[in-house]
Each structure stands twice: as C-alpha cells, then as structure tokens.
Simulated assay, not measured.
Amino acid sequence: MVQSVSRMLRFTIRNDDGWAPLREDLDYIRKFLTIHYYRNGRDVSARLDIDPAAMDVPVMKLSIQPYIENATKYVRSPNMTVDQIKLTLKVSLQENHLEVDIQDTGTGMPPDVLRRIRQLIAEQGESKDPYFRSHTGVRNTFRRLFLVYGSEAKVVESEPGEGTRFRFRIPAGRPDG
C-alpha cells in the first residue's frame, strides 16, 4: 500500500504541466483501487476495457479517477453484497475524441443529487448551489473538465436506478496542441 501511495504522489507532483498518457492515468487508477482494497479489506470488482489505440493519448491527469473514487464511495447499499458491486471503465478512441464511460451497479443517485449534478453540468461546473460546499470533489471534477476542454467536454450521465453511469467525451490530446 505504501508503494502505491508513493507512486501516486510522484505522479501527481511531477513537472508535466498536468498531462500524461492515458496509460499512466490508468496506472494511477489501479493503484487507487489497490489502496481501496487495503483500506476496506475487499476488492472492488473493476473491469477496465481500454482501446489500445487510446493508451498513448495525452489526457489531463486525474480526469477519470475522481469518478472511479465516487463510484467506490457511493455505490454500496446495506442490502447489497460485495459480489453485487461491479465497476466498469471503458475508454475508446473515436475519431479525434476519447469516449470515457464509467458505470457501477450500485444504488444510483438520489433524485435531488441527480438534479443538482445535472444543473452543475448545465452550468459547466460553475454552480453556486450550497450542496457543493460539502461536495467539492464532485464540483471540482466537472469544473476541471470544462476549464480545460471548454465546450468540447461533452458530459452525459444516466438515470438513477441500476447504478450510476457517467460518460464524457473529450478531445484526444491537449487543447493547446
């Protein structure tokens, strides 16, 4: 666990202007899931379905991991067994865009939270809703996408009920070239 934390820290603080190949961002996610296992004593059933053509595409560091973290944090219900919880990350390269799809089999978002997140997306991460004072990670995750990719960041999320799904589409590569 200490090695995973150490490698994650080095990744986040290295001098690279905040960009890394997708493969390195995925390594960070794997280390995060390892730490989750050590902290909770159980594995998250995570499937990473990654298009090999996307592996070397530069992405804004930590643009996917916060969604994975939220899925591991909010997925559980007291009525669910560990075996019922599944997390899937799919990334594909479509023309000049990365299609990112994060889905879990958890309880889904309560309607009031879903409404707030939809509003946050409509406002491109600039919500003044007091809810986001105590849920700053969610706000910051969307805000970063819109700050870096602007109107190119297309975010789509699904209805609650059978888990939660976040999908977003971003340009392949750095906006500045």
Rank of each mutant, 00 (worst) to 15 (best):
V2H: 15
V2K: 15
V2M: 15
Q3I: 14
S4F: 13
S4Q: 13
R10M: 05
R10V: 06
R10Q: 11
F11A: 09
N15A: 10
D16K: 06
D17W: 08
D17K: 12
D17F: 11
G18S: 00
R23F: 03
R23I: 10
E24Q: 09
Y28W: 00
R30L: 09
R30A: 11
R30W: 07
K31P: 04
F32G: 02
H36Y: 13
H36A: 06
Y38N: 11
Y38V: 14
Y38A: 14
Y38R: 10
N40K: 11
G41D: 07
G41A: 08
A46E: 05
A46L: 03
R47M: 11
L48I: 08
D51A: 06
A54G: 03
M55I: 03
D56M: 02
D56N: 13
V57D: 03
P58R: 01
M60E: 09
K61Q: 12
L62W: 02
L62K: 10
Q65M: 12
A71R: 07
A71D: 01
T72M: 05
T72I: 02
K73C: 03
K73H: 04
K73I: 03
V75Y: 08
M80G: 06
M80S: 13
M80V: 08
T81L: 14
V82M: 13
D83H: 10
I85Q: 12
T88L: 15
K90M: 12
L93M: 00
E95A: 15
N96S: 13
H97R: 15
H97Y: 13
L98N: 08
E99G: 08
V100S: 00
D101K: 09
Q103C: 13
D104I: 01
D104L: 03
T105F: 07
T107P: 05
G108M: 04
M109D: 06
P110N: 14
D112V: 14
I117Y: 13
Q119P: 01
Q119N: 15
L120N: 07
L120Y: 01
I121Q: 04
A122G: 06
G125H: 00
E126H: 13
D129Q: 02
P130H: 07
P130V: 07
P130N: 07
Y131T: 09
F132H: 08
S134P: 02
H135Y: 03
G137T: 09
V138W: 00
N140G: 10
Y149W: 03
G150H: 09
E152V: 02
E152M: 14
A153R: 05
K154M: 15
V155A: 01
V155D: 01
V156P: 01
E157D: 14
G163H: 10
R165V: 11
F166C: 07
R169A: 06
I170K: 01
I170C: 04
P171V: 08
G173H: 05
D176I: 06
G177A: 10
